[in-house]
Amino acid sequence: MLSRTADHLYWMSRYIERAEGVARMLDAHVRLALLPRPAEDVLQGWTATLVSLGAEAGYAGRHGRVTPGGALDYLAFDRANPGSIVSCLRLARENARAVRGTITSEMWETLNSTYLESRGIGPDAGVAAAAGFLEWVRQRSHLTRGVTVGTMFRDEAFHFTRIGLFLERADNVSRILEARWRDPGRRGERLGTEASEWSVLLRSLSAFEVYRRVYRTVVTPLRVTELLLMNEDMPRSVHRSLGDLYANLLAVANDRSGETCRQAGSLHASFHFGRFDTLVAGGIPQALDALQARLREIGDGISRDFLVPGVAA
């Protein structure tokens, strides 16, 4: 298929998955707001989220001081923020529009109506409406994924949408975890709420019931982290995403992509055959940073090998 087409498909998928990822992060905050927490902790939490999304400078330029309302507005509704949910939905639709001849008409209709509906949604409706919006974003992402899997021919085009999806998902999960770990607060003094806070994180990743089935015990930060990084059967875990990423990369392999496939396979192997305690021995935030760096490298490799090959290609 055309390299440019593959590029649009890849980014279409990444942006929808990113919209869902940001929605899940914000959803955790909206749920946390229901717990009795000191104002200082709440602000630290929002700051950590902005930092993990690389959005703190952009936010400061728009709003200055971090406030829950400001951060929610900036990350969900701000059209001037290229990483906001509404921007991601718009970019997903723009990429889809460029390849609407390649995707199925149901996919296009889904992405187009998601974008059209998102235009009518603003930040002024209050927290309850914001929660409804975040839920809606997840539903639309589910729908997009379902329509893709349910209607798309299993050719290269399909594999490139999957590659974008799983790379983005692995990245999102690592960022959500990073934000929590960079926000330790005064953990020792509020053991009473810590379990609740990590339960909230699990719920916003649709992983609470899974956690209970896997561990059958109280929620602890380390176990939550282990589940989200290492569990192979958990659909949003990094391990699972890397496995799916690798399989789809193999399906489109060409004579330039050997090194990128090797890197993806090697990263997957470190989750598949590695031990959790070894992986995070140097500190969990450090391990997450390293993971994100390797995902970036794989992303660059995919662009180079498939999506924007040089003129002589």
Binding site: M1, L2, S3, R4, V252, N254, A313
Partner: peptide
Amino acid sequence: QDLFVRDDVLYMRTTRG
């Protein structure tokens, strides 16, 4: 941008060359 000419033949750039 997807097309180029080499030796009097028209090609498109694809993920497989």
